[in-house]
């Protein structure tokens, strides 16, 4: 089974995010870059499926040459090869990203296309749905459990307050949610092997952005609150404040 995993490089979850002078981008100096955490679940799932059923895992990422560092980390986990779609930066409009990925995916003859359910930088959560629509493939988003047997697949997808069990045929698009698996650590052997794995660079004409970022800002700061007191004895005062001042209980 040949599996493509579309991945994105994002700032580390613990990174302090600062707005750059242009007001529409974030400062990238000193940022530690990682594989988008949800994409790690997707890579891990792809590896587990190919370990069981055979086949190859291809990573696909869109961006400048600098994203190859995190692509190598994905290869160190065990993916076989990678494609980088060359672009000066990650486009603001997910439709542009989706169209570029769909064009590359179409050539690959993949049985399964995996994504993380969203990137933790722009939090769009759109590209998997867009790619599935463009390629006219069945898709399940936000998946916490995936079973694949003989071309028939079943996925458990997270919804508000519960789950949907979805069946579909392959090829298909699936986006991974936390809980799907526990991603493996990169072994030293894996890291060494990754250095020799191929990253093919593709040039593609990106379609026009129809979504533009006008301005970034920080959310309004929360006014510092007050300590009502210490220990259980402070509870009656807290309840009074919630009832009479905040009027929320």
């Amino acid at each position: 089974m040949n599996i493509a995993v579309c991945m994105k490089q994002t700032p580390d979850t613990e990174a302090q995010i600062k707005i750059a002078d242009d007001g529409t981008h974030i400062q990238t100096d000193g940022i530690k870059w990682i594989i988008n955490p949800y994409d790690e679940f997707a890579i891990e799932e792809a590896l587990r499926i190919t370990e069981k059923h055979g086949g190859e895992v291809t990573l696909i990422s869109l961006g400048p040459a600098s994203v190859e560092k995190t692509i190598r980390e994905g290869l160190a986990m065990g993916a076989h090869k990678a494609i980088r779609i060359d672009a000066p930066e990650s486009p603001a409009d997910p439709q542009v990203v989706g169209a570029a990925l769909a064009e590359v995916l179409k050539e690959g003859n993949y049985d399964l296309i995996l994504f993380g359910k969203q990137a933790i930088d722009d939090d769009q959560s759109q590209v998997p749905s867009i790619v599935a629509t463009l390629l006219d493939l069945p898709a399940v988003a936000v998946v916490v459990k995936l079973d694949i047997e003989d071309g028939k697949a079943t996925a458990l997808r997270e919804i508000e307050g519960g789950h949907e069990k979805v069946t579909f045929s392959q090829p298909a698009v699936v986006s991974a949610q936390r809980g799907l698996n526990e991603p493996r650590y990169r072994s030293l052997k894996g890291i060494m092997a990754a250095k020799k794995k191929p990253i093919e660079v593709k040039q593609i004409n990106l379609k026009e952005n129809q979504l533009s970022v006008e301005k970034l800002s920080y959310p309004p700061e929360k006014k510092p609150g007050r300590i009502v007191g210490e220990g259980p004895d402070a509870v009656p005062e807290l309840v009074r404040l919630l009832h009479e001042e905040a009027k929320v209980i």
Binding site: P11, I17, I19, I26, A92, I120, D121, D122, D123, Q210, L211, S212, V213, E214, K215, L216, S217, Y218, P219
Partner: peptide, 19 residues
Amino acid sequence: VYTRPMFAGKILADVKLTS
């Protein structure tokens, strides 16, 4: 102008659509 959070709410983005 649409305002949407990014970075899980650490940043707010004002975006426009031309479609």
